[in-house]
Amino acid sequence: MKQYLEEKNFKQGFRKDVERLSKQKISNCYQCGKCSAGCPMAFKMDYPPTMTMRLIQLGLHDEVMGSNTAWYCVSCETCTTRCPREIDIAKVMDTLKIMAQAGKYEVSDTEIPIFDWIFLKSLQYTGKVYELGLIMTYNIISLNPFKDVFPLGLQMFLKGKIALFPHFINDPVAMWEHLEMFSKIHKKQKEKIRETNG
């Protein structure tokens, strides 16, 4: 974290953007810490949820968008359930991810979005996750080709948890419906991006 904050970095437009898109009143957060206290992923996050709320309140978008916080959120909604000020924090985390995708703000260099992207692509083309393809593509793109290959990958392969070839949806009608769904999702995604940047 920065040791001192300069007033010129207080971008209230960023706060308003997050509030508009998430429909949550982040200024309501009084920093009680209850969301961070219960978050199962906080140990991985650059800033725990409470601090993320504070950074958004101040409009420090470089810190927020540059952090891995939202990407580690698993949408368990513990925070949302507990927040005494009725802020849907998980929704805010989602919103931050959408904003990152929309490219309006510079984003963090975490690899999680890359993983998410490959995961969805694999799902789209085969209908079922193709683990081997996923692992290999991810390892190559993230420039870490032998990550988890030995012994974990090998063990899983030997136990039959990782197949050599992808499984496809065999029923053509089901496959058609599946592709249809993805095109809907893409449309929705474009809408979201337009909304985010608009």
Binding site: C32, G33, A37, C39, T50, T78, P84
Partner: peptide, 28 residues
């Protein structure tokens, strides 16, 4: 400790209190 407690659960005869200390930015 500056933070609200999120949950309490029992483990053997102890109570595990999960809270936060927002001043250090940590879970407690």
């Amino acid at each position: 400790l500056r933070g609200r407690v999120s949950k309490i659960y029992e483990k053997k005869d102890k109570l595990i209190v999960r809270g936060a200390d927002t001043l250090s930015g940590s879970q407690v």
